[in-house]
């Protein structure tokens, strides 16, 4: 498998643009970008996860709504059963946990893991059962840690994401070139 090494900013921007290109609203796409950072900091090819997840936009929207409802107590639990992309849900929840210091906890077949401490979400996703919100521990939530660089991105997923992102770009025209910043001026002064 050919991979490419991106920065976190590149992972986040590409995931957000791909989500926009796939048709998700901008505010949701921003959260997809945050989720990609959270996942890629924990050893996961997040761009690949986003590409998989964008195959079912309704599920991404549903994931985001469910996490909102969980965070404000309107639902007690989000079940993983029947979801096609568990890692996207975990990533969206992980980003919320990291950004808000909420104690979102993953229940899996074999135990319970606060997302703030989750080092290997890919392993947990395979047997994930539900997400719940718990009170933060005494002394507050630990600061999330992340690796210095994101996990490598599969070249095919990267190309797919670029393709989706490209749907948001406007081709140049003679008019746009002529009216662009700095057009028609000399810089040999």
């Amino acid at each position: 498998m050919t991979t490419i090494l991106l920065s976190y900013n590149e992972v986040q921007t590409l995931a957000r643009k791909a989500a926009c290109g796939a048709g998700l609203p901008h505010g949701v796409a921003e959260d997809v970008g945050q989720a990609a950072v959270w996942l890629s900091a924990r050893g996961i090819d997040a761009v690949g996860v986003v590409i998989d997840a964008l195959g079912s936009q309704a599920e991404v929207l549903g994931d985001q709504s469910a996490i909102d409802a969980l965070c404000c107590g309107e639902t007690a639990e989000i079940a993983f059963e029947g979801r096609s992309c568990s890692l996207m849900l975990i990533g969206l929840a992980g980003a919320v946990a990291a950004n808000t210091a909420m104690n979102l906890t993953l229940r899996y077949d074999g135990g319970v893991e606060p997302l703030a401490l989750a080092a290997n979400p890919a392993e947990l996703a395979a047997s994930a059962l539900s997400l719940r919100l718990h009170s933060p521990p005494d002394g507050g939530m630990p600061m999330p840690r992340r690796s210095p660089r994101p996990a490598a991105t599969d070249a095919a997923a990267y190309a797919a994401a670029l393709g989706l992102a490209a749907r948001t770009y406007v081709p140049a025209s003679e008019l746009s070139r002529a009216q662009g910043a700095g057009a028609g001026t000399t810089d040999n002064d």
């Binding site: 901008h26 921003e30 985001q64």
Partner: peptide, 18 residues
């Protein structure tokens, strides 16, 4: 209604609400 419930029906407003 909460923002959560509203955005579940109107996800296009998530950016502006934030």
């Amino acid at each position: 209604q909460t923002v959560a419930a509203f955005l579940a029906r109107f996800p296009q407003h998530r950016h502006a609400v934030r």
